[in-house]
C-alpha cells in the first residue's frame, strides 16, 4: 500500500480562549459537542474515517458489526478523590454500564493504564471488583506510570500481566488480529518522555518478524506512541523505532491513554488513537499551565469521560473506533 504522507489530526484541539482558571470553556463546548455525540471511526485502506455517533443508526450495519469487537477503557485513577472527580469508582461503574449496554457485546476489554492513582493494593482491588460486572470478562492491561510507583511495578505484574515479558509487555492473537501490549512508563529519565527501552524493542522486532504483512496489528500502550505534546511529556522517545518494525503492516492501529482526552491522528497507514479517562479530563495540549486534572462542573464531567469501542471488520482491513461518553 502506498503510504500517504498526509499528517492529519482529526480531532483538532486548537481552541482559542482560556479562562482565568485555565479552563477553555468555549473549547469544551466544542469538544463536548463532539464527545457528546461520539464518533464512529473506520480505517479503510489505512485511512481512518470518522462518523458522528448520532449517525450510527443510519450507517450500514456491515460498517459497524465485524468479526471482532472490543472496548478500550483507560486512566481509571482509582484512589483519586480531588475536586476534578470525587467519585472515580462511580464513573468507572458508569463506563462498565456503558460497555454492557453496547448493541454488539465486545469480546474483551483493553485497559491502557493508570488503573490506580497511587499503586495501592486496595485501589487495584477496587478496579478488579468493578470490572467483574462487565460482560466481557477478559481484560488486557498495560501499566500507566501511576501503577508502578512503589515496587518497580511488581504488584501490577502479579495482578494484571502474569506471563508477560519484562516489565509487562506481551502479544496475543484474536481472530487474525495481532494485539501487542507495550510498556513505556518504566525507567523514565530526567527531562525525558515515555520510554520502551532496548530489551522491549528487540522483543517487538522478534514478535512481528514472522507475521504476514496483511495481518492487522493493534498496539496498545499507556503513553502515546506519537508526539502529542512533548512539552508535557506526551510522547515516547523511542516510539519511532518501534513503529519502524510495524510499518510493513497494511493495517496498524495504535491505542493509548495517559492524556485523558480523545484524539486521533492518521500518518500514512498508521492510525493513532487516544482514549478518554474514566476518571477526570485533562486540558488540551498547551492550553493550560500544566497537564493537571481539569475541574469541570459536575454535570459536564460525564460528557468528558468515556470508553472506546473498537470494531474489527475482516476483509476490509478496517478498524472502526467508536468513542462514547459516559452520559
Amino acid at each position: 500500500m502506498a503510504g500517504k504522507e498526509k499528517d492529519e489530526l482529526l480531532h483538532d484541539h486548537n481552541h482559542d480562549r482560556i479562562d482565568e482558571d485555565g479552563i477553555d470553556r468555549r473549547g469544551f463546548l466544542k469538544c463536548m459537542a463532539w464527545a457528546g455525540t461520539g464518533a464512529f471511526c473506520v480505517i479503510r485502506g489505512g485511512v481512518l474515517r470518522s462518523y458522528s455517533f448520532s449517525r450510527l443508526p443510519a450507517l450500514d450495519p456491515k460498517e459497524m458489526a465485524g468479526e471482532l469487537s472490543f472496548a478500550q477503557i483507560s486512566d481509571s485513577h482509582m484512589g483519586f478523590n480531588k475536586a476534578a472527580n470525587p467519585d472515580v469508582a462511580g464513573t468507572l461503574k458508569a463506563a462498565v454500564d456503558k460497555i454492557n449496554g453496547l448493541t454488539v457485546a465486545p469480546e474483551f476489554l483493553l485497559h491502557t493504564g493508570d488503573i490506580s492513582h497511587l499503586s495501592k493494593p486496595e485501589e487495584f482491588d477496587a478496579v478488579q471488583q468493578i470490572l467483574k460486572a462487565a460482560k466481557p470478562q477478559d481484560v488486557f492491561y498495560v501499566p500507566g506510570e501511576h501503577d508502578v510507583l512503589n515496587d518497580d511495578g511488581k504488584d501490577f505484574l502479579d495482578r494484571f500481566a502474569k506471563g508477560s515479558k519484562g516489565a509487562g509487555w506481551y502479544s496475543f492473537d484474536k481472530k487474525g488480529v495481532h494485539f501487542i501490549g507495550l510498556v513505556n512508563v518504566m525507567n523514565l529519565k530526567a527531562g525525558g518522555l515515555g520510554s520502551l527501552g532496548h530489551e522491549q524493542l528487540e522483543w517487538l522486532e522478534d514478535d512481528v518478524k514472522l507475521l504476514k504483512h496483511s495481518t492487522p496489528i493493534v498496539v496498545f500502550a499507556h503513553i502515546p506512541l506519537w508526539s502529542v505534546y512533548p512539552e508535557w511529556g506526551w510522547g515516547t522517545e523511542d516510539s519511532a523505532q518501534a513503529l519502524s518494525y510495524l510499518k510493513k503492516f497494511g493495517s496498524l492501529t495504535v491505542l493509548n491513554g495517559h492524556i485523558h482526552q480523545t484524539m486521533q491522528k492518521v500518518e500514512g497507514n498508521v492510525t493513532f488513537h487516544t482514549a478518554a479517562s474514566t476518571a477526570f479530563p485533562q486540558p488540551a495540549p498547551g492550553k493550560a499551565d500544566s497537564p493537571g486534572p481539569m475541574k469541570v462542573p459536575a454535570e459536564q464531567l460525564k460528557s468528558l469521560l468515556g470508553i472506546t469501542d473498537v470494531n474489527f471488520v475482516r476483509g476490509q482491513q478496517a478498524l472502526g473506533v467508536v468513542d462514547s461518553t459516559l452520559e
Binding site: E145, A190, G233
Partner: peptide, 12 residues
C-alpha cells in the same frame, strides 16, 4: 544535585 519527578520526568 540535579533531580526530577520520576513519574513526570519533564519536571526537573
Amino acid at each position: 544535585y540535579s533531580y526530577f519527578c520520576s513519574v513526570h520526568p519533564k519536571m526537573t
